[in-house]
Amino acid sequence: MELKVSLKNITLKTPFLLASGTCGFGLIFEKFFDVKETATVITKGLSLNPNPGNPPPRLYETYAGLLNSIGLENPGADTFLKDIAPKLEKKKIPYIINIYGKDIDEFIKLVEKLNKTQALAYEVNVSCPNVKKGGLAFGQDLDTLKTLLKEIKKVSKKELIVKLSPNVSDIKPFVKVCLDENIFNITVANTYLGMAVDLKNFKPHFKRIYAGYSGPAIKPLTLRFVYEASKVSEKANIIASGGITTFKDVLEYFLVGAKAVQLGSILFRDSKAPAKFKESLKAYIKSLNLNTFEELLEFFKEKRKAWEV
């Protein structure tokens, strides 16, 4: 059964992506399923230089979710180019590079370095703090986001996907900024800022105090953002990323308007989830007497029309 899905200038073999930060560089998942037939890998967020990440503790499990304070640890662009990209390319694993920088200049230098890879696209992480703006995330300020995207577009030889932050009061203007810059592929969203305290020692659990919240608990929150984002324009291709745990969650995201989904924290619990969901998706499409995944998206789109009377 045909499960391919076309986003703006990118075609994915299936609508499943392994979310950045939850799959390393994807290679280890070869032990669990045939990655190139099942999902597109989004790499661990890469920066120009290696980043050791945050001091431990880095995890805190909550009810049906977890907080993480990994701090974007990564080996840097040079190691990626030398040791990792060749492996992904040799195995023909489709991949997207998640990129971040502490300022616009760093983003530009990083993109220039990575342009020579065979990555399908860049996913721009705009949840990282912009050092020149006092640490406010690029994705929390409309003007900053606009400037960043303009500058990256000038140097990028690949399609861009913007991974929006959910830590905003209204996500729609941020979607519009992407569309205004002719960027039509948008990931909604990222982890939610949260916090945990160590009651025994009367202090925050994490040394950086705040941490990113993910897992089943956040799904309804991101479901709403995906719905809102997909309503901004027909042209927006929304990639949902938030708390997918069961196949039902996958369908819910497609029903509210997502064209593809990222699997994140679930990979920690069930590393075979992408392969299971792929099989379930085929069976579901068949059960509706449809033939392809894109037909399923059309079917859901028709259903959605009735919501807005």
């Binding site: 280890i28 990440g53 431990p56 880095r58 995890l59 993480n68 640890e73 924290s265 990979l267």
Partner: peptide, 19 residues
């Protein structure tokens, strides 16, 4: 630990040679 397979980077400890 979150994943146990080396991808989440959540179980790091501090050592003389870094995390």
């Amino acid at each position: 630990m979150a994943c146990g397979i080396g991808v989440c980077l959540g179980c790091t400890i501090e050592t003389k040679n870094g995390y």
